[in-house]
């Protein structure tokens, strides 16, 4: 266990060398975020008198996008999938086959350190942004919601990681996997609630979607915090999320064991 903490430390150092990169990334990502907020404000402003009937007030809608930004900073994979694929393609994983270190835990350590480094850099601009819109911020829906939210954010990060890790394993078979990563990302962008709250979707579609892994990559923790997912649905959701994380872990292991049989080290 101790050796993986070491990985986290090293990862933190190497990630912080890119702090300028993280800072610009965060600043640039405010452009579409702010645009989204403006768009919804205009829509709610337009409809004065007959507000959109979707269960979201104007303030809630804006807060939703802010929470999405926060959860995204906490959980999204950054370049981990590209790096893993490059490790496989360039034969860097050969050393892990010889050393008593597990590649999955090693990458998880790096992912964790990457998130911490990103948070350290993003906290300042994000804080300023939240302060500017503090009027829209709301407390969690209740203690149970807040507790489930915290657990769920952790599970979200793990699910994000395991899915990216499994996708990156395709590099054992294919030379070029970026297209597959982008296709998955497109589905994720829509079905995880990045673009709009999933509650705006027709009910049957939403119910179906909740059985797929996508809402648990973002929407679920945000929905729980805001009290949009409550009661039984919240606990069932948490169980489903945990189930998907387990499946993600098993999938990642399975892909690795299949891939390693196929693997012939390039460059020795």
């Amino acid at each position: 266990m101790k050796k993986y903490w070491h990985v986290v430390g090293i990862g933190l150092q190497s990630n912080l060398t890119y702090r300028f990169n993280y800072l610009t990334r965060t600043l640039f990502s405010f452009i579409p975020l702010f645009a989204m907020v403006s768009l919804w404000r205009t829509i709610y402003g337009n409809a004065a008198g007959h507000a959109p009937d979707n269960g979201f007030t104007e303030a809630e809608m804006i807060f939703y996008y802010m929470l999405v930004a926060v959860v995204d900073v906490l959980t999204a994979v950054n370049e981990d999938d590209w790096q893993i694929a490059a490790d496989i393609r360039e034969g860097n994983i050969s050393q892990f086959l010889l050393k008593p270190i597990d590649y999955l835990w090693y990458r998880l350590g790096l992912f964790f350190s990457g998130r911490v480094a990103f948070m350290m850099m993003a906290v300042f601009p994000l804080g300023v942004f939240l302060a500017c819109f503090h009027g829209y911020c709301a407390a969690p829906a209740g203690y149970p919601s807040f507790f489930v939210f915290l657990v769920s954010v952790l599970l979200t990060a793990l699910l994000q990681f395991f899915m990216s890790y499994s996708m990156a394993m395709l590099a054992f078979w294919l030379l070029e996997i970026s297209t597959f990563i982008f296709i998955l990302f497109a589905f994720e962008y829509l079905a995880s609630g990045h673009l709009f709250p999933l509650a705006l979707l027709p009910k049957p579609l939403l119910h179906g979607l909740m059985f797929t892994p996508f809402p648990y990559l973002l929407y679920f923790p945000v929905g729980v915090y805001m009290g949009k997912v409550t009661g039984q649905a919240m606990w069932v959701g948490l169980a489903l999320q945990a189930g998907w994380v387990t499946l993600g872990y098993l999938g990642a292991r399975w892909m690795w064991s299949r891939g390693i049989k196929k693997y012939s080290a390039f460059g020795g």
Binding site: L39, T42, I43, N46, N54, L190, L200
Partner: peptide, 17 residues
């Protein structure tokens, strides 16, 4: 995806501006 978003937006409202 972008077209879907337009669909979702206009399920909420009839005009933007």
């Amino acid at each position: 995806l972008q077209l879907c978003f337009v669909g979702v937006v206009f399920a909420q409202t009839t005009t933007v501006g």
